[in-house]
Simulated assay, not measured.
Amino acid sequence: MSEIRNIRVPPRIDSLPLPEREIGRKPAQDWRFTIQGQKFDFQGGKILLNNQNLAELISENLTHLSAQYWTTLSRRLARYRDWATLHVDDPEALAKFSALVHAFLTKIFGRIKKKFDETLDGVSFHLEDGQLLLNGVNVNAFLEMAKKHRTEKGRIFLKGLRNRLAILQSNRGGNPNYEKIRETVERLAAAIEKELLNYSPSVIELPPPSLPSPSS
């Protein structure tokens, strides 16, 4: 009987004390969101795009990638924000997340507006560290490459760049942004004209003269 009296009834599960760190802990939130092959996430106060810090991606590439790329990204980022608002139950984290999204979209929209402002007759231009980009093509870099490897395709492309530069020069009075690139445009236009002189002039092949018929 004494052995029976010494048996202790185990405590109920709900009466077991929890470690202090477990009290009030919120369940982990899943921030992963995929749209058209791009994977978004939010970890450690950072928004990730395909496991890359989105803040770094924007700061390092904002002036280089096309307006179309940033327009597409801004739409997907806005979709991610809408999804998180509906699916994530963490008001404090959502507030930080939303502030980041707002900052990124503001920066992207500012860049898109600037991109469209710097356009003349369908030719978009941008000057970055002395490098002139026309419709996304680095004129300085292509000219240097063409000098090292002269081909017929290179000649045709250089003539196309020269024509685009001529468009900018002919419409310079209508756009205040042109003054920022005027010296660069004039220098590159002269350099391209000089480089084109190194190519042989195009030879126009005429059909052979018709021979007189035997009866004539």
Rank of each mutant, 00 (worst) to 15 (best):
T184C: 08
N140F: 13
F104L: 10
H87P: 06
P11Y: 07
L65C: 00
L120D: 01
A84S: 10
T151Q: 08
A28F: 10
G130W: 15
R187T: 07
P91T: 12
M1G: 11
A95V: 06
E92D: 12
S124C: 12
S216T: 12
Q52I: 00
K147N: 03
Q131E: 11
L196Y: 03
N61G: 13
R164M: 11
V139N: 12
L206R: 07
R8Y: 09
Q169H: 10
K113F: 04
D41R: 01
L57S: 03
S59K: 03
I112A: 11
V185P: 00
Q169V: 04
K147Y: 01
I58N: 00
V185R: 00
P208T: 09
P208Q: 13
D89R: 04
L133M: 06
A190C: 03
Y80L: 07
S66E: 03
E92Q: 14
K46E: 06
A166C: 01
R32N: 09
I112C: 03
R172C: 02
E92N: 15
Y80D: 08
S200F: 09
F157G: 04
G174A: 13
S98L: 15
K180R: 08
L62V: 02
N61S: 12
T151I: 02
K115Y: 14
E128P: 01
M145F: 08
L100Q: 14
E92L: 14
P207M: 00
L120V: 01
W31Y: 13
E22L: 13
A146K: 11
E3P: 00
A93C: 08
K96Q: 06
E128N: 07
Y80G: 09
G110T: 02
S215H: 07
R187M: 12
K115W: 12
S202K: 04
T119I: 02
R12K: 15
P176N: 15
Q43Y: 03
E144N: 10
F125W: 15
A189C: 02
T71E: 13
V9Y: 11
S74N: 06
Y199T: 02
R75W: 13
N61E: 12
S202T: 10
P11K: 15
A93D: 05
V101Q: 09
G174I: 13
N51C: 04
Q36F: 14
Y69W: 04
S124G: 15
W83G: 08
S15C: 10
F104E: 15
S66P: 05
L132G: 09
L127R: 10
H64W: 05
E118F: 08
E144C: 03
I181M: 03
K147P: 01
